[in-house]
Design a protein around this nucleic acid. Structure first.
Lengths: 164, 164
DNA sequence: ACATTAGGTTGCGAATCGCTACTTATCTCG
DNA sequence: CGAGATAAGTAGCGATTCGCAACCTAATGT
């Protein structure tokens, strides 16, 4: 009957999933590109505007939204109080794997070539690995290796861990 | 001066980046939730509609878009020619790391709790690891370990490899 | 043959997008 | 100090997209 190992009990898709919550914060147009700008050292409104070519009102709206969600922190510069700095918070930095995964997918399946410049390991200047889904002990997993499970059926955890 | 190791030469943000290309395919409202439905075994228009509560015209538009981008394949059922099956292509499956990374981020930073059900390794029923950016030899990397580099400066590759 | 189901399409009001122009606060330079 | 220039927005407004409900068409069940 075509069961593929990834089937989750229906009627629970909409509820109990954090994907809608994540998209609430990051799902709008320009949000990911603004985030990418932040990862690349853009700090100021005018930098984002000229670099991304986004309309000013939309940019203002998105920056405010990202600040509201705690992804960027807004601080006026001390040395020039006209300027405002938008910097990634820890929560914002935590989106790095998502962003890299999306970018790598685009490279592989849309543009067909690695974007320049390339993201490398600072230690040995080698390309980073493709972002993968891994088991707890570091084995790469494909869709055939994955199952949806209820928290109480997860191995290697106490009930307290499962609830946290 | 606050250089964080992730600065990419400016003026190249908009060009030469596959993130806009990826977002062209997946950046619209509902696209990720439809993808998630596909990963969870939803195949038919009415399933997506009732499960996600999305408007019918928007759903039709998004499914067509995902098919156009080769993320879903559309095929009318043989046994009931009213029905249409939307199934993930290889390209669509390749979005799994992105989707898992986004979901995990939402769990950690938005909902604050693991969504039920939980994605586990089928072999040992243990939770999958957090999706991370890794070096070529499997070390986890943080933002401090990363640099942007031109293709010709990437170590461990011939020029031919760099160009491909 | 008649009703039902699956997968859409159409119409239309509401919200969002994007462009341009304007505003306000701050800094620089003479 | 006063005259620009600059940074970060805001306001107006037409164009696009969203979302709800109703309708349509082909295939199926009874």
């Amino acid at each position: 009957m075509g069961h593929n190992g990834l089937r989750e009990p229906l009627r629970q898709l909409a509820n109990n999933c954090s994907l809608p919550a994540a998209l609430e914060a990051m799902g709008e147009r320009w949000s990911f590109l603004i985030l990418r700008g932040s990862f690349n050292g853009l700090y100021h409104f005018e930098e984002f505007q000229s670099e991304l070519g986004i309309a000013r009102n939309i940019l203002a709206n998105r920056l405010a939204r990202l600040v509201d969600h705690g992804i960027l922190a807004r601080q006026t510069c001390d040395d020039d109080r006209r300027k405002v700095e938008y910097r990634l918070t820890e929560k914002g930095f935590a989106l790095l794997p998502t962003m890299v995964a999306l970018r790598q997918w685009g490279e592989r399946w849309e543009t067909g070539m690695p974007a320049t410049p390339v993201l490398v390991d600072a230690r040995d200047h080698r390309r980073i690995a493709p972002v993968q889904v891994m088991s707890h002990d570091g084995r790469p997993l494909t869709k055939h290796d994955l199952l949806w499970s209820l928290p109480e059926d997860v191995a290697g955890e106490t009930p307290a861990q499962a609830a946290e």
